[in-house]
Design a binder for these strands. Structure first.
Lengths: 340, 340
DNA sequence: CGGTACGAGGAAATCGGATTCCTAGTTTCC
DNA sequence: GGAAACTAGGAATCCGATTTCCTCGTACCG
């Protein structure tokens, strides 16, 4: 089909099949009442000409575009990317295309994108962000689902990772290994990703009559801070002495990787002396760490898929409201289980 | 504007302004001949009603959708993602939206997406891939630009990173530091990213009458292989002895980071004894490495932008052909320059 | 055998703007 | 003062597919 003189229209198919355009439409969409022979003839003609119905025309008369917007606050980074991919994946199944719109933290850009999506009459919008901290809602005349970063309006539909469950799983795992003195190292203290995980850890320990070892530490989300935090936790610990904790739960794989490195530097064995856990299951960190990290996979693609499902349901007239959590998955590796 | 009873149409604006729909169209698009007062009245009416012209209707009559497809062979991973973002960014300037389509290495999915994009009458398509290895072209009745992964058809328009230039810059930098015995560690030997960089290194050395130190090594794109490769390069080197090379050019930041770690393990100082360079400028690797890596930033966002520019030109009737290279940028850090 | 019912397929309206064409004023100029 | 020129704005057409409404023809039934 190298020679495409112009694009094939329904009238071309109609002419070739010797029927009217309306008959072609009915034949290809399995509507109306037509003789099987006619349907077949039209189908063959469409096939021969490589007819692909014009979606813009279809959208116009259907009053919907079979398109949804994926509005990402940031530049589709490490967290929103999997969410976007999961969503896109789920949408394809529903014969729906995804319009990508990245705001790059610029409210003006975001507003511009929102207007553009509205103008394109998208059937719905999925909004994602860089953090799990609630964000201002957008106001548009179509369904919206917030993924990862929930809406500040509790009546909006949001899907967020269940960080509390993830950290509880970590604690349960560590306790099952006999660890009792568990320390915590977070990232930025002003972000829920740090505080929610901390609070869940404290709660889970409390249920077993235990307390967190040492003070919670907050810093930046970097390996450097992970190393530094280990120094702070160890204080004036000397090689050979038993450390004042037998496990450290880090709030990210980056922190945990840095932490592992520093523990090793200080002559402390992981996991024999101290078990280490990360969070995010970011392969380049969790697998490259020495030892590889036991961590929590937030299953963000699945979260994105779920958001898409909720959106499709809303488009279909079944809107949901409130915040739904998406379950994480504990991934056990050598940093807690010897050479497991 | 909480109450949006239905969407506002051009006739609603016309009614409010007391004019005909065609006049509204002319007023808002600055066409036709209207009195300034009329234009203003229409504008105000449109503003008041929050009128946003239906892009699907506009597309239908304009015979173009003001939309381009971003077709990604893989799941928009580490390499295609920046390309996609750069492209999306450049498109926004042209009032064009981006339809995201990820094929996930599945030819069936890819075909499905291509059909969908054609049906939606996208004005053009940008195709990206996971590697710089040439890929089969797609056949569609609209302009296509291949970004990162070029088309196998040399007549198609492609934009690829100039890896040879990147590696030449690395060599020039190392030579300027007085290094003369430069070794090379690649990733997978069956990928151009490994071989092109190697050949460029050998050529650049040759221009100065130098040869590569040791044999080129190929393996997987991992930190582990970076460490292993260093062991292979060192052979039976003993601590204290001068190593058989004074610099190692790695084909990726991951390899380089692993290499740095192993060099340090073996008691070799970076950069004093051996200078190390990476490739990609992947922040979580290049900055977290000890020491931080001198590396090459392929400027993939810029590459994506360039691809978008070429596509917009092609849509505008000025198609380009052949492979265009996008320049990289050398980023100097401590792994070659002391504590610079 | 005539009338009703149903099946097949075509004609026409519709979706919402853009654009072309046309008409009614107004102005200009002879 | 009347014709030509121009202007502002409205009416009609178009984009391409869907869908509703009709019509025509055949089969069935009393």
């Amino acid at each position: 089909m190298a020679e495409t003189p112009g694009v094939v229209r329904i009238t071309d198919v109609a002419a070739l099949a010797g029927v009217s355009p309306s008959t072609v439409s009915k034949a290809l969409n399995d509507t109306g009442s037509l003789r099987p022979a006619t349907r077949a003839r039209v189908r063959e003609a469409a096939e021969r000409l490589g007819f692909v119905p014009d979606a813009t025309a279809r959208s116009l008369s259907a009053r919907r575009s079979f398109t949804v917007g994926l509005l990402s606050t940031d530049s589709a980074g490490r967290f929103s990317l999997p969410v976007v991919l999961g969503a896109e994946n789920a949408l394809v199944g529903g014969q729906i295309s995804a319009l990508l719109a990245t705001a790059r933290h610029d409210p003006v850009r975001e507003q511009h994108h929102v207007r553009s999506l509205v103008a394109r009459r998208v059937d719905g919008i999925i909004v994602t962000g860089r953090t799990v901290d609630p964000r201002p809602p957008i106001h548009v005349p179509m369904p919206v689902v917030y993924a990862f970063a929930p809406s500040q309006d509790p009546d909006d539909a949001s899907v967020v990772p269940d960080d509390a469950a993830g950290m509880r799983a970590v604690v349960a795992h560590l306790l099952s290994l006999g660890r009792r003195r568990i320390a915590y190292v977070g990232g930025r203290g002003d972000q829920l990703a740090s505080t929610v995980r901390h609070d869940a850890l404290v709660d889970a320990l409390g249920e077993h009559g235990l307390q967190r070892a040492g003070d919670p530490l907050y810093g930046e989300w970097s390996e450097r801070w992970g190393r530094l935090a280990v120094d702070l936790l160890l204080g004036d610990h000397r090689p050979g002495d038993p450390p004042p904790f037998d496990a450290v739960a880090f709030a990210s794989d980056q922190l945990a990787r840095g932490g592992c490195d520093r523990l090793r530097d200080r002559g402390i064995r992981v996991p024999e002396d101290v078990a280490v856990t990360g969070y995010d299951d970011w392969d380049v960190m969790a697998l490259a760490s020495r030892p590889p990290l036991t961590t929590v996979d937030p299953q963000l693609e699945r979260l994105g898929q779920r958001a898409a499902e909720l959106l499709l349901a809303a488009i279909d007239g079944h809107p949901s409201h409130g915040v739904e959590t998406s379950p994480p998955r504990l991934v056990v590796r050598a940093s807690t289980m010897g050479d497991g």
